[in-house]
Design a binder for these strands. Structure first.
Lengths: 206, 206
DNA sequence: ACCTGAACACCGTTCAAGT
DNA sequence: ACCTGAACACCGTTCAAGT
């Protein structure tokens, strides 16, 4: 006999929890059924199959990624603030970055931010294709950065790593400060802000 | 009775072909065995297991990614040329980008390019942490760009896509050229060069 | 040293049968 | 309308047994 009636919402909830905690690999239909206390096949009635279950989860969180409010005095500052806000939002949902990315929904997720960026580029005096290119440059940079960053976090130790390479004496003699800097792990926060700022300044005031 | 003696090299070869043609998902131990005309378990004797087989494949191609020769008159031009060369190399091995990325070997793969970039930053007069930051900014931008680009190619149609969004009349009235530009798919070649150039110019001459 | 088939513990999915 | 267990066709991996 069934427990209290199973709903689609309930399935999505449990699946979401599984993904958030242990990643999409942990979401097997059998494990999900066990979690819910139902037969595996009941899930199929509610969500179709595993693939569309994941689709639904991704869809849901893309919509959760709400509006971005730019802050700062100059357009350049506000663009940087949008980029930073976006990065933070993406980083709060690590497993979902990957899933959204895999499903090619990055664009969709980016639409509100894109509109904000267009507004700022206009305020900075850019129009037409120039403005469009600037918006996309920032967009690519942010998403790309977060992807690379995530990747680095997932695999913290590399061998031979940058450290070992830049330890060698010849380079150190030429520029010991650089050798030390590259031997240290990158400071993503700092690097991100610096990169975006550099890109934006080049795009905006020319 | 066994066919001609199976070698580790032979296994890697067949596995590599499978991955290049149909992606890592197509590389199942059973299919690989069928391709080689051996028992599934023979493969285990030569390569351990599926995971280390993939590791070996990735390792191999990371090493294939040879030296980069910068071209151009100014350091900035040469940095851009390194970035473009890197992008091309990455794009020639689409499935491997993903695998290298998943395994966190992006750093390793980047070492030769990193050294080239350091050289150019020095030539441009940057030292120490400034130079290190500039190198990493370029590095992140290239890898990030290629990841985003790959993603876009894999899922060409999005709905609602950028096109539909930027079709609406209000935006078009304000800046029809921009609306048209964003409604078109991005031209990655152009966008990439423009972005790198913008970033580099901001990093180098300040 | 190298290869084998059988077996184990997993998958996602389908389907006829229940209520 | 919703749930069920049995069954199918897949996985990766282990292992004892062969040569």
């Amino acid at each position: 006999m069934p427990r209290t009636a199973l709903t689609r919402e309930e399935v999505l909830e449990a699946a979401g929890a599984l993904v958030r905690q242990h990643g999409p690999g942990a979401l097997t239909m059998r494990r999900l059924a066990a979690e819910l206390g139902t037969a595996v096949t009941s899930i199929y009635w509610h969500v179709g199959n595993r693939e569309s279950l994941l689709d639904a989860l991704v869809e849901r969180t893309v919509q959760e990624m709400g509006a971005i409010r730019p802050v700062g005095r100059t357009p350049a500052q506000r663009v940087v603030s949008v980029a930073r806000g976006l990065r933070r939002e993406l980083r709060e949902r690590p497993h979902l970055i990957a899933m959204v990315h895999e499903r090619g929904l990055t664009e969709r997720m980016f639409l509100p931010a894109q509109q904000a960026l267009v507004h700022e580029m206009h305020a900075a005096g850019l129009r037409g294709t120039r403005a469009a290119e600037a918006v996309r440059a920032v967009q690519f940079q942010v998403v790309g950065f977060v992807l690379v960053e995530r990747n680095r976090e997932r695999s913290p130790v590399q061998s031979p790593g940058e450290g070992e390479l830049w330890d060698d004496a010849t380079t150190a003699e030429h520029d010991p400060a650089l050798a030390r800097a590259l031997a240290r792990p990158a400071d993503p926060e700092r690097l991100f802000t610096a990169s975006v700022r550099a890109l934006v300044s080049a795009l905006v005031d020319t």
